[in-house]
Design a protein around this nucleic acid. Structure first.
Length: 783
DNA sequence: TAACACTTGTTTTTT
DNA sequence: ACAAGTGTTA
């Protein structure tokens, strides 16, 4: 690819506006970049990393954390374009989960795991919890997997271990009120089951990292030194656990830059804590704050409308986002009779616009609050022959046949994996039913070993099964043992193919001639293709052996956003507002703008929740570059019933001078009142019931004292001896640039900066506090 | 063990 | 309306 020389430092910086450049150039301490919607946040992050690389900081000393694989991938490739692929190789850039999974694999033994641990996805966690609740004989209505998992997840993200959970009287009290007094024990069992199967759930990847750092200061020290510069994207979406990891890595050297927009914090329901960004400055006292306020994406009207909306929120960092683009059209607000009519109106508008203005379908997006709303639009688009693409729904890796195949892979890599065991032991059918698995399971629990352990030595654990079953068990065990043996000699693809062939998956899949069966077989083919591709990519990157475990650790942390890489086809996009975050479209339709839908009915009485919904609306509007249309229906089909609907309160929050209201001359007010009184009282009843549940949030978002590391804020690391003694004329060997001669040394601010002429890499400036090199001699003509 | 009918709970979901 | 989970039968 390009050489480093192609983009010199000045070129890099000249492509930024003043605020962006200031944010990029400041590397001497903690910084917080508040990036309004469309203000070039990604640009700042990528250029900042490129800038650090240009200054001589080797890529493997930079840690950049994102929230999606997609964001990481895109940023990586843009950096590679800026500085050349070779110079960007080795960057630690990825999602929180993937980066710390990698670190945990390296350090697994220290915290009592093995490095081949497997990762449970949400469905796996739910299955295990369902099982535990049943085993404990608890009421599965009160202890529903989703609810229980949510509570455990919140605990983990607040770094509350099972023991701390059980000892916390406030939480115990809360659980008692919620009629789930045994929850602490469910959590305990869940955690010990995960551990005895050498597996972790998503939240563990962060919590175990914190435990690792807390209990092993040497290891924390190692990563602190390793990650000389830490950058975090979308900081408003971090939870406490992530926040603490970041804090610990950065609090010594203070070279940290976090980027985000408090106005776009929309994931609190998953534990994201907006205070992390609001209070960043008080945590790192000398934080420099940079505000990116120029929006390059949208028209002035869209930006102003969005501003007027978000002003209605109370807690936020002051900023004035503006646009110098054209003024643009007003935001059109359309009322329709029903959700059905809504979809037709939108479809018609798109069709007409495309004809009149030659706008490609791919410039349009429909954004809705809930996935269920996509249906009517699908039908309308199909009827009108408008091509569309829906995001969300079941991702490839969540389909049953794929999970089954991956279940085998997981069991091969980590035979202790309980969920994987349960998934494949009788798939395809081999006569090992629930009864038998139940026996294995209770033996396993009794002896505190994995299911696999019991299967391997049934006599040892007094497994009581009849001769036929014993034989079937033995043959399953042999099958797996054979795969496990081959795992040492075969690469991921070869072994996967072998598994599909020999496990019986393929004969099962190919004998089913129903359309669903055929598609399942195709999916399995596709999985094999994906593995094959994975192996060859990794080999091109220089990894000779690409084993199944490598594929697995990547694939466990993929989301559906990462899999659909279909080329930019000419299709209208349909997605939830959540999924649209970070994206932009010329023409956006925000649909279903109704009470009880947007804002969601779950949130009515809760001020914080309402503010989050308002931010969500803000995110929706600010996706639009040229036009934004908002629609709402007077009646909507929901949960099998058609109900009257009223327009969302949020519409009143936008300054009307940016809106073009069209309520079709219907006498809206009177009708509204009628429906409000009747249906309003129905809603009221529902709300009453909801309120009778104890409001969540006894607010244990703060970590208990013994989890909080002793945070002494020490100044930046002293310069290495090499860096202190360096003089003009010295010959140095740099880790990345090779041999070079020091032309001059300057002070810039508090930093020493060396200008070095490298043999092969040309002229470079090195910031001495970053640069890694050794002095290998000096030239005779030094003055 | 497997097929079938019945009950139940449905916001958003980066990992 | 619908999917997922559970219970009932042969």
């Amino acid at each position: 690819m390009q050489h480093t020389e192609k983009y010199s430092e000045t070129d890099l910086l000249s492509q930024l506006n003043e605020a962006q450049r200031a944010a990029v150039e400041f590397c001497d301490g903690p910084s917080l970049v508040i990036a309004g919607a469309g203000s070039g946040k990604t640009r700042v992050l990528t250029y900042k990393i490129a800038h650090l690389l240009e200054q001589g900081l080797p890529p493997y000393y930079i840690l950049a954390l994102t929230f999606t694989n997609k964001a990481a991938r895109e940023m990586k490739s843009r950096i590679a374009e800026l500085v050349g692929e070779k110079n960007a190789r080795g960057l630690w850039m990825g999602t929180f989960h993937s980066i710390f999974a990698r670190i945990l694999r390296n350090e697994a033994e220290t915290i009592g795991f093995k490095s081949n641990f497997t990762i449970y996805d949400t469905a796996d966690s739910h299955n295990l919890l369902r099982l535990i609740v049943r085993e404990m004989g608890l009421d599965d209505k009160l202890y529903r997997p989703g609810g229980v998992h949510g509570q455990i997840s919140r605990a983990k993200n607040s770094l509350i271990t099972p023991a701390m959970y059980a000892a916390n009287s406030e939480i115990i009290q809360y659980d008692r009120m919620a009629k789930r007094p045994q929850l602490f024990e469910v959590y305990q069992r869940y955690q010990s089951r995960l551990r005895s199967g050498n597996s972790m759930d998503f939240d563990d990847l962060l919590m175990q990292t914190n435990i690792l750092f807390r209990d092993h200061p040497k290891i924390l020290e190692k990563y602190r030194n390793r990650f000389q510069y830490v950058l975090v994207d979308e900081y408003q979406d971090t939870n406490f656990s992530q926040h603490l990891i970041v804090k610990q890595l950065a609090e010594e050297h203070l070279r940290i830059c976090v980027v985000g927009d408090d106005a776009q914090s929309i994931y609190s329901f998953r534990g994201a804590n907006i205070d992390n960004i609001l209070k960043f400055q008080s945590l790192f006292p000398d934080t420099r704050v940079f505000k990116l306020e120029q929006n390059y994406r949208s028209t002035q009207t869209i930006v102003s409308a969005a501003n007027s909306l978000i002003k209605k929120n109370t807690e936020q960092i002051a900023k004035e986002v503006f646009s110098e683009n054209e003024e643009g059209e007003k935001i059109e607000v359309l009322e329709t009779f029903s959700d059905f009519e809504e979809s037709l109106v939108v479809a018609n508008k798109i069709a007409r616009k495309r004809l009149e203005a030659h706008t490609p379908y791919s410039d349009f997006a429909i954004l809705y609050r809930t996935n269920a709303q996509s249906r009517v639009f699908e039908e309308a688009f199909r009827k009108k022959n408008i091509p569309y693409r829906i995001y969300g729904g079941l991702s490839f890796y969540h389909r049953k046949e794929i999970k089954d195949a991956i279940g085998y892979f997981r069991l091969i890599v980590n035979p202790g994996d309980e969920e994987a065991f349960r998934r494949v032991v009788n798939y395809p059918k081999r006569g090992i039913g629930d009864t038998t698995v139940g026996k294995i399971s209770s033996a396993a629990q009794q002896h505190q070993v994995s299911l696999w352990q019991v299967l391997s030595e049934p006599l040892e654990y007094n497994l009581d099964v009849n001769a036929g079953t014993a034989k079937r068990l033995a043959s399953f065990q042999e099958l797996m043992d054979d795969f496990i043996a081959k795992n040492n000699s075969m690469n991921a693809f070869e072994l996967a193919r072998e598994v599909i062939k020999n496990s019986g998956i393929s004969s099962e899949a190919y004998s089913d001639m129903t359309p669903e069966g055929m598609s399942r077989a195709q999916n399995i083919e596709e999985l094999l293709n994906a593995i094959s591709e994975f192996v060859s990519t990794r080999q091109e990157e220089g990894n000779e052996e690409v084993a199944l475990v490598d594929f697995l650790s990547e694939v466990s942390l993929l989301s559906d956003q990462d899999t659909d890489n279909e080329a930019e086809s000419e299709k209208v996009t349909l997605m939830t507002v959540h999924a649209a975050k970070g994206l932009e479209f010329d023409h956006v339709f925000v649909v279903g703008m109704e009470e009880d839908l947007f804002p969601s009915s779950m949130v009515h009485s809760d001020a914080r929740g309402l503010e989050e919904e308002r931010r969500l609306f803000y995110v929706a509007i600010t996706r639009a570059k040229k036009s934004c249309t908002i629609t709402y229906a007077k009646s909507r089909f929901k949960n099998g019933l058609t109900n009257p609907a009223t327009k969302s309160r949020f519409l009143k929050d936008i300054d009307p001078k940016y809106l073009l209201m069209d309520d079709k001359g219907r006498g809206g007010a009177k009708r509204n009142d009628e429906s409000d009184s009747f249906w309003g009282s129905m809603r009221e009843q529902r709300l009453q019931r909801d309120r009778s549940k104890p409001a969540y949030e006894s607010g244990y978002q703060t970590a208990p004292k013994n989890m909080t590391p002793v945070g002494k804020s020490t100044p930046a690391l002293p310069l290495s001896k090499e860096a202190q003694t360096l003089e003009e004329g010295d010959i140095i060997e740099h880790e990345r640039f090779g041999r070079g001669v020091v032309a001059s040394i300057e002070m810039s601010g508090n930093d020493r900066r060396a200008f070095v002429e490298f043999d092969s890499a040309g002229k470079k400036q090195l910031l001495l506090k970053f640069a890694k090199f050794t002095i290998i001699g000096t030239t005779p003509i030094s003055k």
